[in-house]
């Protein structure tokens, strides 16, 4: 499993849906899990984006699929960035070549 950081911004329509049915948020999470992702943590945030999700997924392909499926509904815009834990990044940096 690889880790991804997914930054989400609601569209106008998404905002409306959320106001009318707040529980929709949890349903979206279930769908992500059904597609093979696993949500390890999630926050509502203030600023340029509305939510941030730390997501574990088996491959880039799975994440791409989640991204397209979610984006296709027109309720959110997603930016997904591959992430690795800082310790493994440092490990990689300091490993002998």
């Amino acid at each position: 499993m690889a880790t991804y950081i997914m930054m989400t911004r609601l569209t106008d329509e998404g905002r409306k849906t959320l106001k009318e049915r707040p529980q929709r948020l949890e349903e979206v999470n279930k769908e992500i899990e059904a597609m093979g992702g696993r949500i390890s943590s999630q926050y509502a945030i203030l600023g340029e984006w509305d939510f941030v999700t730390i997501l574990d997924a088996p491959s880039n392909e799975v994440v791409a699929r989640i991204s397209v499926e979610m984006g296709a509904r027109g309720t959110v815009q997603l930016t997904t960035m591959p992430a690795m834990t800082l310790s493994s990044f440092i490990g990689m940096l300091t490993a002998p070549k």
């Binding site: 959320l18 106001k19 707040p22 529980q23 948020l25 949890e26 999630q42 926050y43 509502a44 945030i45 203030l46 600023g47 984006w49 939510f51 941030v52």
Partner: peptide
């Protein structure tokens, strides 16, 4: 650095409702 206040998702959903 961009510093962003984060709200726990469960709390956020509860507040929305």
């Amino acid at each position: 650095r961009t510093i962003i206040p984060a709200i726990d998702m469960k709390l956020f959903t509860r507040l929305l409702g």
